[in-house]
């Protein structure tokens, strides 16, 4: 966990050591939010061995919950957060109930299909801007206070929630529940032979990951004050999956490292050249080929 703690500490110090400018904080917020989403996806991929290619839908549903409530002039976090997390968890449970009956490539394809279904649904929501997206009237409030409009408050909220997701994920993986989940990833037959049916454990994990991603979706909506169907696009799911693999499946902190590396690299290359995608793509391929075990693996060896 050391590397993640160093990263979290650096993020906490960032605004006070010369990274307090608006655009930098915006970038860091995006990185932290995606890191949180990556943590939730890691629980599925690294924890339960379920490779989902539809995880952006969970984020998007959280973000669209903010939109729907914003349109009804409901902005208080006490309502927004539970509704967003609940909606994402419900979507996860319903689609997971079907998807988890499959495995391997079929699981990837079916989560992709459900993700696309959610994407097209949001694109058809004319009342909320359809394809063009929806601009929020304002950020989520807390007890009527518009604290989230303060950049520093928002920075530390994202950081705090990321730390919470990381700690909560660790706790979950170490618990009885997590042990069954991890064992079922390694050898489902062995787990059944001692008396567990993996299905309910996997389904609950899927729901929990959905809820965490939904919360990240709330932050994502607030960060941009704008939500569009592109949030749910399968490319986003692919990015998240890539962050998880780049970070490494050896440890949950890999999700944080992978997400930060991904966002910062993308940003840095974007500054270097407008053709940054031409470099980014091959870099991703090389990192998969040469960083066995991801960034976490590199840290362990080094």
């Amino acid at each position: 966990m050391r590397a993640a703690l160093v990263v979290l500490a650096a993020l906490a110090a960032a605004p006070f050591i010369g990274f307090g400018e608006g655009y930098v904080l915006t970038l860091l917020a995006r990185a932290m939010i995606l890191a949180m989403a990556a943590v939730s996806l890691w629980l599925l991929v690294g924890g339960a061995g379920m490779v989902s290619l539809g995880h952006a839908a969970m984020l998007g549903i959280g973000a669209y919950a903010v939109v729907v409530l914003d349109d009804a002039r409901i902005t208080d976090a006490l309502v927004v957060v539970p509704v967003a997390m609940g909606a994402a968890a419900l979507f996860a449970l319903v689609t997971g109930a079907v998807a988890i009956r499959t495995s391997g490539v079929h699981f990837i394809m079916i989560t992709l299909a459900f993700g696309q279904m959610a994407f097209f649904t949001t694109a058809s929501l004319a009342a909320y801007g359809g394809d063009d997206g929806y601009t929020l009237y304002g950020r989520t409030t807390i007890g009527g206070q518009r604290w989230l409009e303060n950049r520093l408050v928002f920075h530390f909220l994202c950081l705090g929630l990321l730390a919470l997701a990381l700690a909560g994920g660790q706790m979950l993986l170490a618990s009885r529940f997590g042990r069954v989940l991890r064992a079922a990833r390694e050898n489902p037959l062995r787990v059944q032979a001692v008396g567990f049916s993996p299905y309910p454990y996997r389904l609950i994990a899927y729901g929990i990951a959905g809820a965490i991603a939904g919360l990240a979706g709330v932050l994502m909506a607030n960060a941009a004050e704008f939500v569009a169907p592109s949030y749910l696009a399968w490319q986003r799911s692919g990015d998240l999956l890539f962050m998880v693999i780049l970070g490494g499946l050896g440890s949950l902190q890999g999700a944080v490292l992978g997400a930060l590396a991904f966002v910062l690299l993308e940003e840095w290359l974007g500054h270097l050249t407008e053709h940054w995608r031409l470099i980014f793509g091959p870099l991703l391929v090389l990192s998969v080929l040469f960083l066995r075990g991801g960034l976490v693996g590199v840290l362990r060896r080094g």
Binding site: M171, L172, A174, S175, R176, F177, G178, R179, V180, A183, V191, V194, G195, F196, P200, Y201, I204
Partner: peptide, 22 residues
Amino acid sequence: ENAALAVQARSGSSFRFMRPAA
């Protein structure tokens, strides 16, 4: 832990999310 998982399977609920099983 291989053996502990088998003990766990017959020792109450495994839908416990907080306490470290180890």
